[in-house]
Design a protein around this nucleic acid. Structure first.
Lengths: 228, 228
DNA sequence: TACTAAATGTGACTATTGTCACAGGCAAGC
DNA sequence: GCTTGCCTGTGACAATAGTCACATTTAGTA
């Protein structure tokens, strides 16, 4: 892939949207272009974290396996998203794995390169700080949702989080299987199924050929804030 | 309070331990010294976030109230901890309140001052990035724990999180009431009580005059990783 | 000290959600 | 086309944890 193409991809995404050309050039020059097949791990839980990734294309799932074997999905990443910055920054090991859920490409940046870039382009640190602030906000909102609400409102929240903002008629960004939805929303597959059936009954969502579509966005938002 | 004293307090804590004198001086010069009584809010959920706080003394609770009224405690902050950086960085509103649980003092830094300091002392940004990385790690570990484990292991984790590392015989950093422990660990007060009684029976913890003490740290760690 | 409010201990019951079991359906590849 | 494997639908049941109710203890303060 040519540097110019990479630069275009990077520039399209929020974190890099206001990078100047020198910054983009530096990222590309020092980064390694990586490609992954569906199912490959971009980052593996337990590894030392000596690099940072910028997702260029495809989608990936961030998840952790608890010591009792339970899988917890933390997030789904799209192109433009920065991954693996936590371990890079604090020197600890990777606490979660990132797995490609479709063919995916990324720019890999080593710690040394990252530190040079940070030192050279001081806006970069501020941009990263903002990205991380968003992530903390999201994590706190997950904790709040998991704690304060029962399964119904919770599933509603996770569906809304997966819903495409302006796009056509309630389609989700990703077509997850019900088991995957379960790992994401923290409920059993069976319970997901029953909840979706109930909502399907009430015309709140439609389940067609395994894919969920949100029919009544307002209603779902309302459920997401419900008392029980 | 004199600048010198402030400087000493700041320098004792990780984030500022390797600040040079100019950085410390800048923080103190531009910051406002604030004092709070027990129960006062240092930060109020829903407010615009135009300042950052550095806790100088005392302890505070970070918590959010969900739309259904449920209170979720995210963390307890000690002296040295930076608070409110998220809203400051991303310009959003405060997603959680921070409440003094005892008489508390803090250094308040406005956005303008903060930006000047960041611009002037470029190590500051890196230090903050590290602090935030830790916070994300902690948040992810809360999500993992809440999702993957049942109440027993979960309470064990939260007790361990409150336990003082090197200090004398299993005392906790804070003496929380069982209701507060419940809000922190995400369980009902009654359930906390029963679990503590059971562990007290098994010599894993001791409950004396309302205060919890960890007797068998190894056992509690083991429970924290248990299958169920 | 005595009075009051808050925190704790405990039983009985309920609600929510997970688990197990199994049937049917859809899709990919031989 | 047929077969294999994953995903989906659904019933019955079990387990975990919450709720309610109330007795009891502790702590704070007039």
């Amino acid at each position: 892939m040519k540097a110019e193409e990479l630069a275009n991809i990077l520039a399209e995404h929020s974190l890099f949207a206001d990078c100047d050309e020198a910054e983009l050039a530096d990222l590309i020059l020092r980064g390694h272009f990586m490609q992954y097949k569906k199912g490959d791990d971009l980052i593996m839980q337990g590894d030392p974290g000596n690099s940072l990734l910028i997702l260029l294309s495809g989608n990936a799932r961030t998840s952790m396996i608890a010591s009792n074997g339970h899988e917890v999905v933390l997030d789904y990443a799209e192109a433009g998203q920065v991954l693996g910055e936590i371990a890079l920054l604090d020197g600890g090991e990777r606490t979660a794995s990132v797995t490609a859920i479709e063919p995916t490409s990324a720019l890999s940046i080593t710690r040394a390169a990252f530190e040079e870039i940070l030192a050279k382009h001081k806006n970069m640190a501020l941009r990263l700080l903002k990205v991380m602030a968003k992530r903390i906000r999201m994590a706190n909102s997950m904790i709040e949702g998991d704690r304060a609400y029962t399964s119904g409102p919770r599933l509603a929240r996770y569906l809304l989080r997966l819903s495409v903002v302006g796009a056509d008629e309630g389609r989700l960004k990703l077509d997850l299987s019900q088991s995957e939805l379960g790992n994401f929303a923290g409920m059993s597959r069976e319970h997901i199924n029953r909840q979706l059936s109930a909502w399907s009954e009430g015309q709140i969502v439609a389940v067609e050929s395994g894919k969920v579509r949100i029919l009544d966005h307002a209603m779902l938002s309302h459920i997401a804030e419900a008392d029980s």
